[in-house]
Every structure is written in structure tokens, then in C-alpha cells.
Amino acid sequence: MIVSDEMIVQVKQMILSALRIEDMTPDEIDTDAPLFGEGLGLDSIDALQLVVAMEKEFGVVVPDAAIGTTVFASVRAMAAYITENRK
């Protein structure tokens, strides 16, 4: 799935906004780095916050953590999931 640069930026902005990360800019987030564990070091609390944000901003549902593991693999994976499932 090819995702637009615009969507990549939108996803990064959503992450920063939903998680209230104030000391980073979208450019500083690696598009292909893992979001959990290494990378941004997110956890399950962050995951649910991102699920809510994705639903609110894009109308896209992540039903459970198993799917979330794939969706939240990276910014690019999130953007691809949103592009594919956006209403």
C-alpha cells in the first residue's frame, strides 16, 4: 500500500497531539521506526489513546491489541491502515 506524504505528516501530528508530546516535531519522528518498545517507547496506555484519536480524526477503528500490534508497528503502518480503512 502506497501512502501519501500528507497522510504521513497527518499521522505524526496526530501522535504528537494525542499523546501531548510537546518536545518533538513531526520531522523528528522516524516514519519507519517502531512506535512501541524502542522508537518512541509507547506502551498500552498510549495505544488506547491512539486508538481513540484515530477513530475521532479519521473514523478508523482498531478493534483489539492484536490488530493494534500491526497497525502501530510504525507511522507508515498507521498511515497505510488509515488509508485502507478510512470511511
Partner: peptide, 8 residues
């Protein structure tokens, strides 16, 4: 079963 996003 009730739809939790994750359990651990």
C-alpha cells in the same frame, strides 16, 4: 470476550 482492547 467483552471487547477489551488488551489484557495482560
Amino acid at each position: 470476550s467483552a471487547g477489551a482492547f488488551s489484557v495482560s
